[in-house]
Design a protein around this nucleic acid. Structure first.
Lengths: 126, 126
DNA sequence: CCCCCATATATGGATATTGCCTATATAGAA
DNA sequence: TTCTATATAGGCAATATCCATATATGGGGG
């Protein structure tokens, strides 16, 4: 797949969903990368996302103007970079939602095609 | 940019669905690459898939044991490599379907989350 | 005081995948 | 002969993720 691992051979995991998912979380509550990682992994049990992937996507989205960051002191531990979504980011999120709806439809159509064949028994002769 | 296009920033087009889609088409009717390209593009109007991508995935799937090919003379024009699915290929297809179902659910959950926010009006203040 | 751990951010290298371009080859039509 | 349709395939550039690693702050235990 686009990179690394992808040995799966089928499907997308959450791959390209990461950016819109991050945007939605930030829209709900502006916060920093470390907390986003935790929210992410709490929300999708079993599916762990690499911290590097989160931080890289946050930096990238700031370059693209979808989010803005500002340093913030923590009560304890190192400073955090707090992210907030921009108007551009909201637009990007809306467009992403439309694409995801299309993808959902594509997957549904494909699943339907498969189920028709499976019902006819073309598949279960092992 | 070149590969993966992905300038979209959100979404996967048909990306990782290519292999299972090819397997399903071959399962329905063993055939050669050129016809698969046409079936593919006829089925998904507007979404054109690169011939190179199809041929590459077919060669790769043969290496992995999901399909078997044999040369066949055409009535006119160059010889064709006809593909048939194997038992391994059917298993791989079944696993891919399970993953796609999971992905569909993930997308649905995400869309629902978004819609809740949109309904509350957190998004349409432009 | 020093070491370890949790918190917090970030980058480099390896690997994988795809789009675009190009190369090869056969055979019928103009 | 040249053009087009059929048919397969590889090189290159771009991109994305994973894995490992680097850096840094501050609290607790010894």
């Amino acid at each position: 797949m686009a990179a690394g691992k992808t040995e799966n051979g089928a499907g997308v995991s959450l791959d390209r969903m990461i950016q819109p998912m991050l945007l939605l979380l930030i829209l709900k509550k502006p916060t920093h990368g470390y907390e986003l990682i935790q929210s992410f992994n709490a929300l999708h049990e079993g599916e762990i996302v690499e911290p590097g992937t989160i931080y890289r996507n946050l930096r990238r989205m700031e370059k693209e103007g979808f989010v803005l960051s500002s340093w913030e002191a923590a009560e304890s531990g190192p400073a955090r970079r707090k992210y907030a979504i921009t108007g551009e980011g909201i637009k990007a999120l809306q467009e992403a939602m439309l694409k995801l709806k299309q993808q959902k439809r594509q997957i549904e159509d494909f699943l339907t095609e498969y189920d028709i064949l499976a019902t006819r028994g073309s598949i279960n002769e092992n």
